[in-house]
Amino acid sequence: MSHFNKPDAGIRKRTSTFSRGRSNKPKPGLQKHNYSIEHMDGLGQGVCKQEGAITFIAKTLPGESGVARIHKRSKGVQFATVDAADELSPKRIAAECEHFQQCPGCHYLHTDYQTELSFKQDALTKIMQPLLRSGHLSEQSISVVAAPERLSYRNRMQLHYRHKYIGLVDAATNQVIEIPNCKMIRPEMQSEFDALYGDKTWSESRDGKGHCELYLDESGAVKETWNSDYADGGFTQVNDAMNAVLKSLVSDEILNAKKAPSRLLDLFSGNGNLSEKILEKSEETLPRVMVDVVPNNHEDYLKIDLFDEGALKRFKKLSSFTQFDSVLIDPPRKGFPALTYWMKACKPKQLIYVSCNAATMARDLQALEGKFTIDKMILVDLFPSTYHFETVACLSFK
C-alpha cells in the first residue's frame, strides 16, 4: 500500500493531530468530548450526535471516532478539534500538503478526490430537497463535473498578516497559520509567494494586521496588492481550467435550447466572463444586454445596481429590450431575491442560474412563480480540495 493510501495517515490513533510550529491545538483546559462521526456537513466538517449534543469536527470522516476538544459553542451546537482518534476511516489518506491539519484553507485532502466529490454532491442534493419534493427537480438531473487538477490551480491568493506572520486565519484559535509550502498556488506565482516567507522586510513598514493578495492578471503577470479590496484588479475566477469548462457548459446550454435564443440578458455580468463565449459560438448575431454595477466598456452594458429597489424600473427605462428568450444570472453569494420579479418582466423561455452558494440559489428558485422545470443541475468543481463548488441550474419555462 502506498504512503498516500494508508488509512491512518495524517491523524494517528491516540496521538496529537498537530505538528510543531504555530499550532492550532486548542488551549489546555478546553472540555473534552467523545465523538463518533455520522456524516459530513456542507462545510466539510464531520457531524457527531452524541452525549446530548451536535458537534462539528473538521478534518474527520464518517465512521471515525475518538476524543475531541470543544473550542466553541453557538446556537445549541458545538465545534471541536480532534485530540486523539480511536477509529479511522478506510477512506482516509495522507494529505499531500504538510499544512493540511492546521490550515483552514482546504477541507478534503485527507480523502481521495472521488470521495470529496461524493460529499459535495450529497451536500448539493440536501440543499435542493425542497425543489426535489416540489417536483421541479429530479435527483437524476443532478450531475458533477470534476476538475482535472486537485492542486496548483489557484490564480489568486489572499493572505492575512499579523506583525511578521502571514498566512490564513484559523477560526478556532484566531491565529494566523503560516503556509510557506502551500500546494494550491499556480506555479507562475510561486516565486512571489516564496518571497513573502523568505524575506519578511515587508513587515517593517506594515504594523499590526492586514492582508496581501497575489494574483495573475489577464496578461499572465503576477500582481501584488496590500490592504486593498478583494479582487482590486478586477474579479476573475480562481481556477482558469474550470472557468473554461464553466463557460463552455453555459454556452452549450443556451445555444442548444429547444428554441434558439434571439435575445440574451446577462445579469451580474461583470466583464462578460460567461456570455462572451456564447456570442463567440453563436452562428448568428445574438443581441445581448449585460447588467451589473462594475466597470464595463461594452456597448451593450447597462450600469445598474441590481440590488437597488428601483433596479427593474431603471432597466426597463434604459434597455432597448425588455423581453428575452434566455436569461443568464451569476449573482454573488447572497443570491438574487428579486429574481422572480425579473422573470415576470422578461418572460424568458430559459434561465441559466450560476451560483457559488447553492443555498441562496435554492431559495431564489423556490420563490419563482409559474410553471417551470429544472432540466439540469450541474455541480462544477471550481474549488477542488475545499467544500466550495459552483452550481449551474438550467431551467425551462412553460
Results as ranks from 00 to 15, higher is better:
I378D: 01
H99Q: 04
G310F: 14
P332W: 04
M184R: 07
A241W: 01
F100S: 08
Q350D: 07
H107M: 11
S282H: 04
R263G: 12
K317H: 11
A359P: 07
E369W: 10
K200F: 07
E98T: 12
D305M: 03
F4N: 09
L339K: 02
S152A: 12
D375E: 12
R162Q: 11
D229R: 11
P90E: 15
R14I: 07
H99N: 03
D199E: 13
F79E: 02
D325I: 10
H33N: 06
L379H: 03
P295I: 12
P148L: 06
A94N: 10
M157I: 08
D330A: 01
Y341H: 13
Q31K: 09
L249Y: 15
M290E: 13
N5P: 06
S269Y: 03
A53K: 15
H107C: 08
F389D: 01
F372G: 08
K277H: 09
S152Q: 11
C106W: 06
P180R: 09
V176E: 04
Y153L: 02
E280C: 10
G105L: 11
K120T: 03
M343D: 08
H33P: 02
V294A: 15
G44M: 02
M1A: 14
S191R: 13
M290C: 15
V289R: 07
D8V: 10
K183C: 02
Y353M: 03
R363H: 04
E390R: 04
E87N: 14
